[in-house]
């Protein structure tokens, strides 16, 4: 896929290296874009998973409507961790508006030990990206999870202590994963590659 433009939207915080290298290992060097309006001028949009909801929502705000229309128009998008949370409306982590492409809110995990840091299993996966990559154990680093209004968008589950939450969601060509595939070793990298293959097909 040498001609495809894959764009990582940069909220200005944290490690984008691993995601960029994960994408690059599929054959395309991604563009890193800090402007949310320019970010949608792409064939594939990646919302990375580092930072906090409120500052990221602020960075997004000028382009929120543009981004939402692009996703509704069929632009393939993979949101990772915080990037998944930004697909929703609001977050208990702090003020600010997400893209709102998937109705619902982001809430704190109900558990004794937080943040949830480490490897958890992906249960009842229905998204074909899982079968395509063999991904079963995934790396999490989060205290908040997405609570969709309509659970039919949920394509896999994980459980931390007693709280069962959406490990992944999909609406059309928009996919959100609460875990970090770019940190989930070889199967995680294969998951991202499977998404890119589908997105660029």
């Amino acid at each position: 896929m040498p001609d495809a433009r894959i764009t990582i939207f940069d909220y200005g915080a944290g490690n984008l290296h691993s995601l960029a290298k994960t994408v690059a290992s599929a054959g395309t060097t991604p563009r890193i874009e800090t402007d949310p309006i320019r970010a949608v001028e792409t064939n594939v949009l990646l919302l990375p998973g580092v930072g906090a909801f409120t500052p990221a929502a602020e960075r997004l705000s000028a382009g929120r409507d543009v981004m939402r229309r692009a996703l509704e128009g069929g632009l393939p998008c993979l949101g990772i961790c915080l990037g998944m949370q930004l697909l929703f409306d609001t977050s208990d982590e702090g003020p600010g508006a997400g893209i709102g492409i998937i109705p619902g809110h982001v809430g704190r995990i109900v558990a004794e030990r937080l943040p949830q840091i480490g490897w958890n299993t992906v249960d009842e996966p229905t998204d074909p990206l899982f079968a395509g990559s063999g991904l079963r154990h995934v790396y999490y680093a989060n205290s908040f999870v997405c609570r969709p209004d309509d659970p039919s968008c949920i394509t896999s589950w994980s459980t931390h202590e007693g709280d069962r939450f959406a490990a992944s969601v999909r609406r059309g060509r928009t996919v959100g994963v609460q875990f970090h595939p770019e940190k989930s070793s070889r199967a995680g990298v294969a998951f991202v590659h499977a998404f890119l293959k589908e997105a660029l097909a």
């Binding site: 290296h17 691993s18 290298k21 994960t22 940190k183 989930s184 070793s185």
Partner: peptide, 11 residues
């Protein structure tokens, strides 16, 4: 760290 992140896909 940079050289490692290019090749390591765990935290």
């Amino acid at each position: 760290a940079k050289r490692t992140a290019e090749r390591l896909f765990i935290p």
